[in-house]
Amino acid sequence: MIRFILQRLALLPLLMVIYSFVIFAIMQAPPGDFLTAYVATLASSGSSISADQIQALRHDYGLDQPFIVQYGLWMKSLLQGNMGLSLEYQRPNVDLIGEQLGLTIALALFSFVLTWAIAVPAGIYSATHPRSIVDHALTVINYVGVATPNFMLALILMWVAFAYFDVSITGLYSPEFVDAPWSIARVLDLLAHIWLPAIVLGIAGTARLSRIMRANLLDELNKPYVVTARAKGMKEWRLVLRYPVRLAFNPLVSTIGWYLPALFSGSLIVATVMNLPNIGPLLLRALINQDMYLAGGILLIYSFLTILGTLLSDVLLALIDPRIRVEN
């Protein structure tokens, strides 16, 4: 078991190197560079900059170097831990990202917990009461939940809140806490705000997960071991929780592998629409301005979180399923 985890961990650096290379290639792909975009922005605002100055800046940033040298420079800055300098903000990328990363992860994890807390009981109820009114209602909610893009739901909620209740539901803090230092009151304020974006982010996943749970559990409920357990004289609800639910959990745990990463990258859209502190909007801006080291750094963090999510699900699955544990 430990060997299995170590093997997976050993693969991680290799994967990160592959990703960093691919990401850098994508970052380099657009024609022009940060300075071309910068000049265009300046021009649109009426000011200009001389060609000599641009050339000097280009040399300073190393943008005139060949691809592989630039990649090397970036790797060096990554290994040093500062992830290079943001061309736009003129600050170390690690600071820019660090400011937002904590809340990005907090939002995704909060949404994850919320998803499971809703999807699992709903799925169990639906499977044990098939074709009941509640089951039908949940099915309808699930279909609509899956069909509604995150940003649509965010827009609708924001519009309803603004137009009918005259409140703004953007951001993660009340105005007085935005720049306040961390305190218990600030954490409570965060908790009071985070659940709405968390629901928006998790609604499609909740719908999918509860449908997976329902389908799995319906399958498991027809297995002979359920009859065996019933024939032992077990109480029905205890039996359902102990055997079929336990088995229906395995495929659900394997969804963590794609669901957690989906939450991380999905928070990008929700955060952009709802104006949340998150690395998503930062990435969007960096991409548009061709601030390539910042964008590259954020993409690398997304990749890292994705691999971590997959790893987590594999380890959890091995822990709860003896069939996998023994084989490994």
């Binding site: 994967l15 994508i26 989906a262 990258s265």
Partner: peptide, 20 residues
């Protein structure tokens, strides 16, 4: 496996941003 462990939305964004 490599493609499936790619963070889809950010990479899509990066690729579309790379379009001329």
């Amino acid at each position: 496996e490599l493609l499936q462990s790619v963070p889809t939305i950010p990479i899509w964004l990066a690729l579309s941003a790379a379009l001329p």
